[in-house]
Design a protein around this nucleic acid. Structure first.
Length: 858
RNA sequence: GCGAGAGUGGCGGAACUGGCAGACGCGCAAGACUUAGGAUCUUGUGCCGCAAGGCGUGUGGGUUCAAGUCCCACCUCUCGCACCA
């Protein structure tokens, strides 16, 4: 017995094969069960799974398996986000065909996923690079186009010189490309955008629907990204010409304190001033020099908080429409052309940035919000006053508390026609064009006669041609492929050119969860009736890195599709779990650090079940997980310890079976399967020793704890520790109770429930043991174990007696003991008596079932 | 600077509602079995102390019969945002 181990090398493949043959994870819609859609972020087929994937998928698999056993009809699919740069880079570097490269990698990754024993419905696998998928990605583009949600415009866009393509704002992190880390530059190009800004308000507002299901952190990140701000747009007038220059402010209450105005160096009014002869040639040269210098700075340098504010006066004034007073016009580095109107009013007394700027250049400071505590004097101020106060020097608003003033000034401005209330967002439209060939072609044709023409839906997909030549130079291979570029106009039949850009791969991934619901549909991307049954995703699990990117795009696409009537949910993902990273020696695993742990090697050495167990046990899912070689050894030991516990109990199990009545259909000599109910009944009829009852208590408490851990929170680590305690209790029982006195029924119950409980974590081990117990059907089709509340109650409990909050004694008392009785027992304790002798008992606080605290004085 | 999270033994972590701090695992030590043990089973293991006992959840204060948990001030780390007008 001591030698026996779970032979994962033969048994894991055995069960994987059996599951596949019997299709036990195949999911069909079932009206009789509640649905549960468990989803993980599908992988990019890089070729090898890393530990991050394994953690992500093991978490979702445990959830899916638990829900399945708990009676849900579970949808748990997988797919491959298989368009994108790495395939194309492989083509450029090694001459590989991206399609072949991708296919090979997918095959490799599928193999690894199968070796981990995940309970996917493999029939639903989606591959975004296949025609039967990207055809519908193109279809979605056309639907957006039809409704004005996809459009082309020329704009300064982010350009990654390494990836040789444009990027969406979300894909630029601190001025660098999210994939390759190159510094991103600006280019003025005509590109396709999705009008996500039309949904800005709803995307923000509906975060409220996700308050329960999503981490606060992610909701905050999206809120910040959308960056809604309410304010007043005011038109100042350029004194010499009468040109209107609108500014946006969230502080209308400070408008009487304006002493200057700043516009971005790229602001069109600057050009007008320079070419109008309003200012001296010398001034123009000064302005041009400043503009040039700003251009050479990178976005990061220009917008960093540390950069000192600097600017150049334009030598002209603007007029404040509120009081008719002139204010100097400047250009400065700290005003950005692409936020608000590209022009801001300068109120140095009440804005720290304006204050610094004014101090540096000797611009006047005018106090218009008076500090109610100390009277502010402009010349004595060392920083802007930004706290609440009373409006002064503000014409009709003098004496108004400034917080009230915000609304009053805005209303006044609208009434007088000098301003209007507006809302600004930081969110920009989603730039989806990519100058890359390994993606879904944008289904648009340009015709000299008809202009921009969408490809008719019945002509989809616009196929990616085979045999593209990848050189890495001269733009996208698609644009150089004559056969692809030249086509005929779907409207007039004349010669036309295809759009040669493909779509951002984030478009592919912003609807895959819908396709999983109806993956084989070749008439439509999905049948709304089917999708509406499965959606929303009940639990989504993935890394925090998509907090804004994928999760925002998917929310937008879902809302747009909802408005078109193709889906009926407002939000695609009802609940989100952002799992922590897998780290090693305190750092993220990376090749350069040499601390990468390969899942393949771990499976080879310890088996999939041990890997899964360790990953779930070592840390709560949302926290970072420190990989430890010793830790996985421990998991491996537990797998074997559990295995021995069950295998060695088989004779006892058979004995238990023999104690129960023979049922019709039982075959002589076979163990036969014991139902939970049969066992419970038989135990109820038998008499139990104190040890039997104690073991039962542990068994039933464990079921209760693990159920709560899996149902209410994803506390796999404590669930597994409870399972370890149960295992320890079974060993202890068998060690302490002489064999002839051991209760076969109670042991059988313990074994049965233990195997069911471990099934979500170690599916191969569980199924092997389940079959050894004589069950013909997979454990994964069995019901989640139940527990008897009565059996979880202990007969006696240990209570703690404290004196002045310090533990002084421990007493064993009957479980049901009331407060008064507890108090009596506590005070009667010899130890307590000796400690309180000669002291005055001030108070006694009994906490039922837990402790008694005796407060003494003297 | 703003926002979020975290700080508990040698290590990963537990303590969910204020009620025995350190469950469970790793590591370490001892014992049993053994030709052998890097297998297995058992026992011990926060720190100081021979003991009685004392001290212990980042720091300092507070509330409470009772604080890892609540309140106030602060320190450190991680992540996100950052001249957004």
């Amino acid at each position: 017995m001591a030698e026996e181990r779970f032979d994962f090398r033969t048994l894991e493949p055995k069960w994987q094969k059996r599951w596949a043959e019997e299709q036990i994870y195949k999911t069909e819609w079932d009206d009789t069960k509640p649905k549960y859609y468990a989803l993980e972020m599908f992988p990019y087929p890089s070729g090898k799974l890393h530990m991050g994937h394994v953690r992500n998928y093991t978490i979702v698999d445990a959830i899916a398996r638990y829900r399945r056993m708990a009676g849900y009809n579970v949808l748990h699919p997988i797919g491959f986000d298989s368009f994108g740069m790495p395939a194309e880079n492989a083509a450029i570097q090694h001459g590989a065909d991206p399609a072949v490269w991708t296919k090979t990698n997918i095959a490799e990754m599928e193999k690894q996923l199968r070796r981990l024993g995940y309970s996917y419905d493999w029939d639903r696998t989606v591959y975004t690079y296949r025609e039967d998928y990207y055809r519908w990605t193109q279809w979605i583009f056309l639907q957006l186009y039809k409704r004005g949600l996809a459009y082309k415009k020329t704009a300064p866009v982010n350009w990654c010189p390494t990836c040789q393509t444009v990027l969406a704002n979300e894909q630029v992190e601190e001025g660098r490309c999210w994939r390759c880390d190159s510094v991103v530059t600006k280019k003025n190009l005509s590109q396709w955008f999705f009008r996500i800004t039309q949904y800005a308000d709803e995307l923000l507002e509906d975060l409220k629907l996700l308050e329960k299901g999503w981490p606060e952190r992610v909701r905050i990140m999206q809120t910040n990204w959308i960056g809604r701000s309410e304010g007043l747009q005011i038109e100042f007038t350029l004194e010499p010409t009468g040109d209107k220059i609108p500014v946006f402010t969230t502080r209308p209450d400070t408008v009487y304190g304006v002493t200057f105005m700043v516009v971005a160096p790229e602001h069109p009014i600057v050009e007008k001033i320079c070419t109008s002869g309003l200012v001296s040639e010398e001034k123009v040269r000064e302005i041009r020099a400043f503009q040039e210098r700003m251009k050479t700075l990178s976005e990061i340098e220009r917008t960093s908080t540390e950069a000192e504010k600097e600017g150049v006066p334009l030598g002209v004034n603007v007029i404040n429409p509120f009081n008719g007073e002139p204010a100097q016009l400047w250009i400065a580095n700290y005003v950005l052309m692409d936020y608000g109107t590209g022009a801001v009013m300068g109120v140095p007394a009440h804005d720290q940035r304006d204050f610094e700027f004014a101090k540096k250049y000797g611009i006047p400071i005018k106090v218009v919000i008076q500090n109610p505590d100390h009277s502010l004097k402009a010349e004595e101020m060392t920083e802007a006053y930004v706290d609440p106060g009373i409006m002064v020097n503000s014409g009709p608003f003098d004496g108004t508390p400034n917080l009230e003033g915000i609304a009053k000034v805005a209303a006044y401005a609208e009434e007088k026609g000098i301003g209007r209330r507006t809302v600004h967002y930081r969110l920009r439209d989603w730039l989806i064009s990519r100058q890359r060939a390994w993606g879904a072609p944008i289904p648009i044709v340009y015709c000299d006669r008809c202009g921009t023409v969408p490809v008719p839906e019945d002509q989809l997909p616009v196929r990616l041609p085979e045999g593209l030549v990848f050189t890495g130079e001269g733009g996208s291979p698609l644009a150089r492929h004559e056969g692809f570029v030249h086509t005929t106009c779907p409207q007039c039949g004349g010669p036309a050119r295809r759009e040669t850009d493909t779509m951002d791969t984030f478009v592919d991934s912003s609807w895959y969860f819908l396709r999983y619901c109806d993956p084989h549909n070749d008439k439509a991307p999905w049948d709304p009736e089917v999708v509406n049954k499965w959606m929303p995703v009940d639990q989504y699990v993935g890394g925090i890195e998509h907090a804004v990117l994928h999760l925002l795009y998917s929310r937008f696409i879902t809302k747009a599709l909802r408005d078109m009537g193709y889906v009926n949910v407002d939000e695609p993902f009802a609940a989100l779990l952002t799992q922590g990273m897998v780290i090693k020696d305190g750092a993220k695993m990376s090749k350069s650090k040499g601390n990468v742990v390969s899942p393949e090697e771990m499976i080879e050495k310890y088996g999939a079940d041990s890997c899964r167990l360790f990953i779930l046990f070592a840390a709560p899912p949302e926290r970072d997980l420190d990989w430890s070689d010793a830790g996985i050894e421990g998991a491996y030991r537990f797998v074997n310890r559990f295995y021995r516990m069950v295998v060695s109990a088989v004779p006892m199990w058979q004995h238990a079976r023999s104690l129960l009545p023979v049922r019709p259909g039982d075959v002589a000599g076979m163990t036969g399967a014991l139902s939970e109910a049969e066992l419970t009944e038989a135990i109820a009829r038998s008499s139990l020793t104190a040890e039997d009852r104690e073991l039962r208590r542990v068994v039933h408490t464990t079921v209760k704890r693990i159920t709560a851990d899996l149902q209410e929170r994803f506390a796999f680590n404590t669930a597994i520790s409870a399972l370890m305690e149960l295992t320890n209790a079974v060993y202890a029982y068998r060690e302490q109770v002489p064999e002839e006195k051991q209760n076969a029924l109670v042991l059988a119950e313990a074994i049965q429930k233990a195997v069911l409980l471990i099934a979500p974590f170690c599916p191969h081990l569980a199924d092997e043991l389940w079959s050894r117990l004589g069950y013909p059907q997979s454990v994964h089709l069995a019901s989640w174990p139940s527990y008897d509340e009565e059996a979880t109650r202990a007969e006696t409990v240990e209570i703690v007696v404290q004196i002045n909050g310090r533990v002084r004694d421990r007493l064993t008392v009957p479980a049901g003991i009331d407060a008064a009785e507890m108090q009596k027992v506590a005070l009667a304790s010899e130890k307590v008596q000796s400690l309180i002798a000669g002291k005055q008992v001030v108070k006694v606080i009994p906490v039922p079932g837990k402790l008694v605290n005796i407060v003494v004085k003297g």
